[in-house]
Design a protein around this nucleic acid. Structure first.
Lengths: 177, 177
DNA sequence: GCGCGGCTGCGACAAAATGCCACATCCCCA
DNA sequence: TGGGGATGTGGCATTTTGTCGCAGCCGCGC
């Protein structure tokens, strides 16, 4: 495997840490930047073959970050990974040269698969099995619930779902697969 | 104004007619194709500077149509316009060379603006609100479906859900928020 | 102490979604 | 011409929702 220097740009430090650690086990050599300034500094002294960027880096824009990465190197494989996904930003990101656009939550396998797709055009077959929609939803609910400090009513409002329904979903155990 | 030859590919004839008439008033010289075959025929004898393509042309794929258009001419400004919008297909379409991706219903002004807009000077802010679980699921289904090249049975297996259920979910239009 | 607003858990019931089986087509031939 | 797989659809039995309503708690200001 060739060198895989990966830069993760996301303002969520805990998320970065976990992602970084996991990807290191997968053979990536990762660095983290919590904002665009930090990323710029790292770019001065490093060349990255891969990058994962969040759309919202604090109050900064991941699209701007993408532009910077692209300017620094046309070789970098840029992956957008965000909880604030929209079609408009996806379109923009791809135009800017991002190679893929995933929404949180996403399995690490999916991230790696996205990076590997088209690499030397050896097509990666789709995984045998992916998380079920139920599983994805459960993780998502947990994440938003955390954002709302465990407030069920607020979470339900934010998600546009009925509080009763959210309660019931949370009461259930996560589906395995 | 330079010549604006526009090809509309959509299986909804009424929609095509209205759109065509409106855009003619805006100075476009439009032709309509209700399916890929018809579009192919028109491409044999015409060169188009612009194209609007629906993602679901009957049971055919707008992505496939985009590929064909791109092959026919690298100059054509291709706009995807669909009621079944998803991030996965948007990413794919832009990679294939579409210049923009709008969701139905879209104002004619938006369409024209999209055609006229030049390179990504667009400032797209990420959304404030989180997507509803339904929306997230829709996006996910579309993504996996694309991975499986549109094979519904395979997608259902991969996701561990019933094929019938997947069919039904796909048949529905995506929820807005 | 008291009322108010917001959050929470939960029962009940109708409406909608899902799981599951069956069948008729198609299409392809790795 | 056969077999295997994919697809579209109809018809149920089950589950899961959407919605209301009600009661209990808690923090806060008067």
């Amino acid at each position: 495997m060739t060198e895989r220097h990966l830069l993760i740009i996301d303002d969520d430090e805990a998320f970065c840490d976990i992602l970084s650690r996991t990807l290191k086990r997968r053979g990536f050599d990762t660095l983290i930047a919590l904002n665009i300034g930090a990323a710029r500094d790292l770019l001065r002294n490093n060349a990255f073959s891969h990058a994962i960027v969040d759309l919202r880096i604090g109050d900064e824009s991941g699209l701007e970050m993408t532009r910077i990465l692209r300017t620094a190197s046309r070789e970098t494989r840029i992956l957008i990974l965000t909880g604030y996904a929209s079609i408009a930003t996806a379109v923009e990101a791809i135009k800017l040269g991002a190679m893929h656009y995933l929404t949180k939550p996403a399995a690490v396998d999916e991230i790696v698969a996205a990076f590997d797709s088209n690499e030397g055009d050896a097509q990666v077959p789709p995984p045998e099995t992916s998380p079920s929609p139920k599983r994805l939803e459960w993780e998502y609910l947990q994440r938003v619930l955390l954002e709302n400090h465990g407030n069920i009513s607020a979470t339900a409002r934010q998600l546009g779902m009925h509080r009763r329904t959210l309660q019931r979903k949370l009461a259930k155990k996560p589906v395995r697969h």
